[in-house]
Simulated scan of single mutants.
Amino acid sequence: MALKATIYKADLQIADMDRHYYASHQLTLAQHPSETIARLMIRILAFARFADEQLGFTKDLFETDEPALWQKDLTGQLEKWIEVGLPDENKVKKASARCPEVAVIAYGTQVDEWWKRNSKLATMSNVSVWQLSLATTQAIQDLCERTMQLQLNIMDGEWTLSSDKGSVPVEWIALK
């Protein structure tokens, strides 16, 4: 018998003083049986980085040809393609040809090696690559609950993710 997804709900309050973006998002995430809590929480941070009413989670690990998140316009055309993890360079290249804006949110101990192996990503004009620090990746797991109340404050490039369980400074490293 196949394992089923675990459903998580997050009420995410974003106060982004840098972009003047203030919104509340009710997110429902399906955690694939092979997905870690760290990756689940990073998907929430990826959502927050590109927050928009049209941005949504995809089937991701259930459908390998989909990203973690995407944004479509009202006609169904792709506007943003957001990968989480260390995707294959060819997948990002295909996404780059299909979509005006592509982002990769990389995390983990293998990011430096992955970045060296996928050097063509640096030449793609519509692709941005962000890395989350190891400290952030480890700390955000402590905030995870099946039903979460999360607050994200962003000011002068500094991110702080908070819940009843504590606060975590979120450190982003721009690779491209």
Rank of each mutant, 00 (worst) to 15 (best):
Val102Trp: 07
Glu113Arg: 11
Ala135Pro: 00
Gln54Thr: 08
Val111Arg: 03
Ile44Ser: 06
Leu69Thr: 11
Lys165Cys: 05
Asp88Cys: 03
Cys99Glu: 14
Ala38Leu: 09
Thr160Val: 12
Met124Asp: 06
Asp142Gln: 12
Asp60Thr: 03
Glu113Cys: 01
Ala95Glu: 11
Ala51Arg: 01
Phe50Cys: 13
Leu45Asp: 14
Leu121Val: 10
Trp115His: 02
Trp81Val: 02
Leu61Val: 03
Phe57Thr: 15
Ile82Glu: 12
Thr28Ile: 15
Met124Ile: 15
Ser119Glu: 13
Cys99Asn: 13
Asn90Glu: 12
Ile42Pro: 07
Gln141Ile: 04
Ile37Gln: 11
Met124Arg: 00
Ile105Ala: 03
Ala46Gly: 15
Thr58Asn: 11
Ile82Ala: 04
Leu132Asp: 10
Lys120His: 05
Val129Leu: 04
Leu132Gln: 06
Met124Tyr: 08
Glu66Gln: 15
Lys91Gln: 15
Trp114Gly: 03
Gln149Leu: 02
Glu53Leu: 08
Thr58Leu: 09
Met148Cys: 09
Cys99His: 13
Met155Ile: 02
Gln110Trp: 01
Ser133Arg: 01
Glu113Pro: 00
Thr58Ile: 07
Met148Gly: 03
Arg98Leu: 12
Ala122Lys: 05
Asp156Arg: 01
Ala103Trp: 06
Thr123Glu: 14
Asp60Met: 04
Gln141Asn: 03
Lys116Val: 13
Phe47Thr: 15
Lys165Phe: 09
